[in-house]
Computed example of a mutant assay.
Amino acid sequence: MAIATQPGLRTDRWQRSFHPWQGGRGPEAGLTIRFAIRVKPGASRTKVGGRYGEDALVVAVQAPAVDGRATEGAFKALAKAFKVPVRELTLVSGTTSRSKLVEITGDHHDRLQELLDS
């Protein structure tokens, strides 16, 4: 497994890796990006963008933090922001926490950087 990171970002929070056992075709086949998000439940509107701390992507959702509804809303918002189906997202850690570690299939590091900088 080869790991390449984008300069300026911490490797323990954001990484791009290649997993040859994953299916798919084309240049994005087998690539995943793992990054931290910070969910803000109960927001007036759903929005993806900005930083929390050094390198966590902020995901504001209208859903309350009850029975996993905020996490579900965050995943729907992330899927829409990255223009991928929800099934391409994986929750690595943080099931009941506002800080979560998410993995997305495909080479979306440019879009992640845009969202972090917005």
Rank of each mutant, 00 (worst) to 15 (best):
A2M: 07
I3L: 14
T5C: 12
T5W: 04
P7D: 13
G8E: 11
G8R: 11
G8I: 07
D12F: 09
D12C: 11
D12A: 10
D12N: 13
W14R: 11
W14Q: 13
Q15C: 11
Q15R: 11
R16L: 12
S17A: 15
F18G: 05
F18Q: 12
H19N: 15
H19S: 10
W21S: 15
W21R: 13
W21E: 15
G24L: 06
R25P: 01
R25N: 11
G26A: 07
G26H: 09
P27F: 06
P27W: 08
P27G: 09
E28H: 14
A29E: 05
G30T: 08
L31P: 00
L31I: 14
T32I: 05
T32L: 10
T32N: 07
I33D: 04
I33P: 00
I33G: 00
R34A: 08
R34C: 11
F35W: 06
A36K: 06
I37M: 04
I37A: 04
I37F: 02
R38M: 15
R38N: 10
V39M: 09
P41I: 05
A43P: 03
S44H: 12
T46E: 01
T46V: 03
K47Y: 07
G49T: 03
G50Y: 03
G50E: 05
R51I: 04
R51F: 00
A56N: 06
V59H: 01
A60L: 02
A60I: 03
A63P: 01
P64G: 09
P64I: 07
P64C: 06
A65N: 14
A65Q: 13
V66R: 12
R69I: 01
A70Q: 03
T71H: 06
G73H: 01
G73C: 06
A74P: 02
A74T: 02
F75P: 00
L78I: 01
A79G: 12
K80S: 02
K80I: 00
K80D: 00
A81I: 00
F82K: 07
K83L: 05
V86A: 14
L89D: 02
L91E: 08
V92F: 04
V92A: 07
T95C: 04
S97R: 15
R98L: 14
L101P: 01
V102E: 02
V102A: 03
E103S: 13
I104L: 12
T105C: 12
T105W: 02
G106W: 03
D107I: 01
D107R: 11
H108Q: 10
D110L: 13
R111V: 09
L112N: 08
Q113T: 12
Q113Y: 10
E114Y: 06
L115Y: 01
L116V: 07
L116H: 07
D117T: 13
S118A: 14
